[in-house]
Design a protein around this nucleic acid. Structure first.
Lengths: 352, 352
DNA sequence: AGGTACTGTGGGAGCGCTCCCACAAGTGAT
DNA sequence: ATCACTTGTGGGAGCGCTCCCACAGTACCT
């Protein structure tokens, strides 16, 4: 009656810190300490508080905590692509798996945000401006994307999955695209293929560039010269793979191997090869990239370069959590630029 | 200097409502009204506030709002399956697309939550208990799942995508599984198939049961009797489709058509049929369910029953937002049970 | 004995909003 | 001129936490 509007009416009758404190016969601060795992609490007190928490079924109010502590305990996985591609490319699901696994023994909440359209991007900008997440995981970012700069400007911790360029300023995790490209070509050379074509990924993606470089260097180092007409740009889509393969075949009918910058493109290439009556691998050897489910289920099964995507996801989280933790007490330690590169592995199947 | 700890230091220097109010020369309450679109503000005042908001780049603090208003402006899409299946089945991506579209002109944030493992489910329970979302979208729930009851107990608005049974208490959106099953069988009958097998989905999923009923009734209504040995339970996976097809073929070598409860299972069935030398559709007609990308890309292209999944997603959001809005002022209006059922459509291709 | 340190604890102040009461000013009926 | 509304506005109180200061108690020095 004394209280203005009935005290706990708003929160749906959920117990508050204060009530737990009363129950346990301690102060509010002490309960907070127990909840947050502070070491400065005696064992007896801790036990009493934990009992009270259990009895009351106390669950901290996230909003109140976020307001008081100025943090959200949430991080976003931002995918600057339309949903469609996200589901089409196994890359993302593997990454999500790693991320989820690494996050699972944390209090952190993962948000999945698509920013494919302009509209979505504006929403995202607003979202970040509101500091609704403690950190951001950036996946599949193109060279000219302004997102990383926005993040830097807002001082939001972020980790990027493929650096935008050799001079990436954000903390990044990547697989060894250069080495992956090399190994694909070296493998084909060892199988006595000499006219090796390459369908590249989108060349505004740094990783795709690096694969091309690996392709070139592997040929050169083996004493062959690079025939530029054997290199055809693709765009990571099946349709793009089809188009590229058609052009390659028209230009260089004598090719005897194709290294596609992704399994999906390899699937497109395979269709065209089939239609043109080229047998795989007898007439043309085919290699993909990603070692996705597509590769295993292709007919014939596709040799492919495996990236440890799941592990990349895990490492990204590790790095991000560190950055978030480090930022909390504004120590402003001159973080050395951190770039992690993980090894790739060639998975041989019957297409090569 | 007067203020204890430096006023705005915590929030990272972001402008607050109070500052916007000062700038616009109005009170805090008025700014709040403008921000929240209340009609009780004069045009002149509104303009002044909006100008101040723009100049300062004001963005509301979500945590503060959530705390004060006891809402989160977030809803969760809960998938009681491991991530793997989520990505494997196009069902989910289509649904997500509809949901995202319908949500895009809203302030609501969508959270994607997987609850496949026990561990994840406990996390989810905790999450819901903390009322971290205003509402929940439930997808692909099994008959014995305790989740809906938890939701009801916590009084969290929820909409379920496939009712758990005929007596579903939650608001639900579904496609006409019964009609879909019927139409598949009717189509096969019209093509003069007489020994029509059915690979069912998981029978603890109500929709799968309904498809079986549709299958049965279509046969009966056409004057045929149902041969139970032609019905083989599957589990919605490719491997399950393979197993079921193998058993069917062993039991009923004379079958001339197969209606699979999902495209993925149809893909599994196709493999077995091929291996056994049965031509599609010459020897055996094949029909799937879902009309997913798999159906279009199968060889031969698969006839399939299309569910308007994207629209289901949209409708779910509509209903959920209504429930959330209705709940806000605790009017407790006796909500009539709401069940929406959307029509399916048979998409004919060359497999039948 | 007095100092100095640490450990454990209580509780005030404040995070940035929303809600709602109070009240000024305007409108029209009596 | 009075009353009864309506419209627009300001600002107090409070949401449930965290942060931090103050302080009691204990331990170990000099």
């Amino acid at each position: 009656m004394a209280t203005g509007h009935g005290a706990r009416s708003r929160s749906g009758g959920r117990p508050t810190l204060e009530e737990v404190a009363a129950r346990a016969g301690v102060g509010r601060g002490t309960v907070s300490r127990v909840i947050n795992g502070s070491p400065r609490v005696s064992d007896a007190t801790r036990a009493a508080v934990e009992a009270a928490v259990a009895e009351l079924g106390y669950v901290p109010n996230t909003a109140a905590r976020a307001l008081a502590a100025n943090r959200t305990d949430a991080i976003a996985l931002v995918v600057p692509e339309p949903e469609t591609r996200f589901f089409a490319e196994p890359y993302f699901s593997d990454m999500l798996k790693g991320v989820g696994a690494e996050l699972s023994d944390t209090e952190m909440q993962l948000l999945l945000i698509f920013a494919g359209s302009d509209r979505e991007r504006r929403r995202l900008a607003q979202y970040l401006a509101a500091h609704r997440v403690d950190g951001v995981l950036l996946v599949s970012v193109h060279a000219d994307d302004p997102l990383p700069d926005l993040l830097a400007q807002l001082e939001i911790p972020a980790v990027i999955s493929g650096p935008r360029s050799a001079g990436e300023t954000l903390t990044s995790v990547d697989s060894d695209n250069y080495g992956g490209g090399r190994s694909a070509v070296e493998h084909l050379l060892s199988r006595d293929r000499r006219r090796i074509a390459h369908i590249t990924g989108r060349l505004d993606v740094y990783g795709a560039q690096r694969r091309v470089e690996g392709y070139r260097d592997a040929l050169r180092d083996a004493g062959h010269e690079v025939d530029e007409s054997l290199i055809e740009p693709g765009d990571f889509t099946e349709e793009g793979g089809r188009r590229a393969m058609t052009r390659l075949l028209a230009r260089c009918p004598d090719l005897d191997a194709v290294f596609a910058g992704s399994d999906v493109m390899a699937a497109g290439a395979r269709q065209v090869l089939r239609e043109e009556g080229r047998r795989i691998p007898d007439d043309v050897a085919l290699i993909g990239y990603d070692d996705s489910a597509i590769a295993r289920h292709m007919d014939p099964p596709l040799t492919s370069v495996r990236q440890p995507i799941e592990e990349m996801g895990r490492r990204m989280i590790d790095l991000l959590l560190e950055e978030i933790a480090d930022r909390r007490p504004a120590v402003s330690r001159g973080l050395e630029r951190r770039q992690v590169v993980l090894a790739t592995e060639l998975v041989e199947r019957t297409s090569s």
